[in-house]
Design a protein around this nucleic acid. Structure first.
Lengths: 162, 162
DNA sequence: GACAGATAGTCAGGTTTGCAGAACATTTTC
DNA sequence: GAAAATGTTCTGCAAACCTGACTATCTGTC
């Protein structure tokens, strides 16, 4: 039995208890998005972390990062990165290319398969997002996005000055 | 070193990568609320799970649940519930009262201390919620709550028919 | 050019954490 | 009296993570 089954049951129990208006709403939406993200990334070894790695690689595709740089970008330990890349390389999503200038370092580059998997996940996430807003009018969606962005900025400000 | 330090760093790394508009905003807000909830509940043994237990107890205070009922409500294993209640009882937040009608079962009841701790946490959470909306006008807040509730219902519907 | 020290990546443990199964005592129910 | 249920404890498992050692390489200094 996958660990998600238990976690999800526990989360739904939380939801019935935590309906403090805003917190409950945010939690429901966040859970829905997280669930979709987990499902979209569950075919990848390493789950959502693999998604982060693929994102980082796609962003800097012109200048492939080394494993250490990659680890720093996504906040992982280098040893963890080694295992993660082992799995991802095993599935043909990326390659480790030794740097001829510094033969200690290995640059990580996306394969076509990796790019297509990343595209698949992004598409699924985008679909889930728009599905969430399906009951809102066009005007309401714009309002919602604006308000959400503003509140998110407030939240980000509060978290930065920790 | 607390595990939150690493988790938080990784989460902030996620945020820079995942700014897909809506998902990013929801994630920021959810993280801020989670952080506050974790801080508010960190004085309790068991963290946010203890908060769930206290909530469940306060909701059904006229009919104190047994440990097994409580475990079912918050989605915990009964063995885990035993340990959690050990800690909470040790801090005087609740009592285990044997049921004279069925001396196998033990009802769990809130103490005054438990009630006051619960009130404290709820107050902190409410303060954090309103702090999030501090930059919005009164009208915007109402709009935001309405839209958020509607989207949350959509999200909940999607999760129910899993 | 040779050496010491630093660095990238890998790997083999060990630690922690959290959960759940099994066994047990106590009590109820049939 | 047999079977089931509640709660407790012991135990082991599994995942995730990190530390430390190791190899291979680079960089600086003499």
């Amino acid at each position: 039995m996958p660990p998600q089954a238990r976690g999800r049951a526990s989360d739904s129990a939380k939801c019935t208890a935590l309906d403090n208006d805003l917190t409950w709403a945010i939690r429901m939406i966040s859970m829905a998005l997280r669930r979709v993200a987990a499902e979209a990334a569950e075919t990848l070894p390493g789950g959502s972390r693999a998604y982060l790695v693929l994102m980082a690689l796609a962003e800097a595709e012109d200048k492939p990062p080394t494993q250490l740089e990659l680890a720093g970008q996504v906040g992982l330990d280098r040893t963890v990165m080694t295992y993660l890349l082992d799995d991802l390389e095993g599935r043909g999503l990326l390659l480790r290319r030794p740097n001829p200038k510094d033969r200690r370092a290995r640059h990580v580059i996306l394969t076509d398969e990796g790019r297509s998997q990343l595209l698949r996940i992004r598409t699924e996430l985008a679909a889930a997002e728009s599905q969430l807003l399906v009951e809102l009018s066009e005007q309401q969606r714009a309002q919602f996005r604006d308000l959400l962005a503003q509140v998110a900025l407030t939240a980000a400000r509060g978290s930065h000055g920790d």
